[in-house]
């Protein structure tokens, strides 16, 4: 089995992200591997452990995205590749998908590509489906369990977490898969893993290595702002006993017509 997992470097979920002078900043909060992508790495490793083969983590980003790749290596991925090119600054999702698809093709013979459900910076959540579409592969999104995988025959069955519940879907390999949290808690990097990752030489591919021309992004972000201060009224409802507090609360809820 040849498996690829796509990881992105993002500001930590607890970071205080603000706009200052038109620039997005998060102070000295750390950059981390996108939390959803840790689940993707975990899933990739479990499939590799069950069926053999190797897992390659790939990331498109600046030099610092190597940290996300090192995290993936420390968790147990065998290889990592950074795709970095000045022409990719400001890339939109379509270009990102074309680049990831080209990298997957270059790795060649890939059976499964794993993605996180969404990246917590842009909250776009389209890359798995778009990369699949570029490759002409089935997209199995929001997967909460890989119930069957037969690399010999080339078939996979997954459970997807959709609005109606768990949907069971079957497809042929190769396939693109985005995972949600139910897929299983990501492992912590082992001490050995961390040591190996810190010494790893991560190759960098440019657009021309992928045989791609940069295209101007179709989607642009003319402005990014701090959200307007919401008028928040905070009120503490007090009373002598729970009964009295509950009655006051109910009155309040009915008064505000939110029920």
């Amino acid at each position: 089995m040849k498996i690829v997992v796509c990881v992105k470097q993002v500001p930590d979920s607890a970071a205080k992200v603000v706009v200052e002078n038109g620039q997005v900043t998060w102070g000295d909060a750390p950059l981390v591997i996108n939390p959803w992508d840790e689940y993707a790495v975990e899933t990739a490793l479990r499939q590799q452990e069950a069926h053999g083969g190797e897992v390659t983590a790939i990331s498109m980003g600046a030099e610092n995205a190597k940290e996300a790749l090192k995290h993936a290596l420390a968790m147990g991925c065998q290889n990592a590749v950074l795709i970095s090119d000045p022409a990719l600054i400001g890339a939109d999702s379509l270009l990102t998908a074309r680049v990831l698809a080209a990298a997957i093709k270059k790795i060649s013979g890939v059976d499964l590509a794993f993605f996180g459900r969404q990246a917590i910076d842009g909250d776009v959540g389209v890359t798995a489906a778009q990369t699949a579409r570029v490759l002409g592969w089935p997209a199995l999104t929001l997967v909460s369990a890989v119930s069957q995988l037969d690399p010999g025959v080339g078939t996979i069955q997954v459970e997807r977490s959709v609005e109606e519940g768990r949907q069971v879907v079957e497809a042929k390999l190769p396939a693109s898969i985005s995972v949600v949290k139910d897929i299983g808690e990501p492992r912590y990097p082992s001490f050995m893993g961390i040591r190996k990752a810190s010494r790893a030489e991560i190759p960098v591919w440019t657009l021309s290595d992928l045989g791609l021309e940069a295209s101007a992004p179709v989607v642009t972000w003319p402005e990014i702002t701090n959200p307007p201060k919401r008028e928040v009224l905070t009120e503490i409802i007090a009373g002598d006993n729970p009964q009295e507090i509950a009655e006051k609360l109910v009155e309040k809820i009915i008064e505000e017509k939110v029920l």
């Binding site: 999702s93 379509l94 959540g125 389209v126 489906a129 778009q130 699949a132 609005e163 992004p217 989607v219």
Partner: peptide, 23 residues
């Protein structure tokens, strides 16, 4: 922005070489 709406918009964007602005 349901699971279906998002996925559909994502794929059509690839087919039509256009952009998707989700959510």
């Amino acid at each position: 922005t349901t699971s279906r709406g998002r996925e559909l918009a994502a794929m059509i964007a690839v087919d039509l070489k256009t952009g998707v602005m989700p959510d």
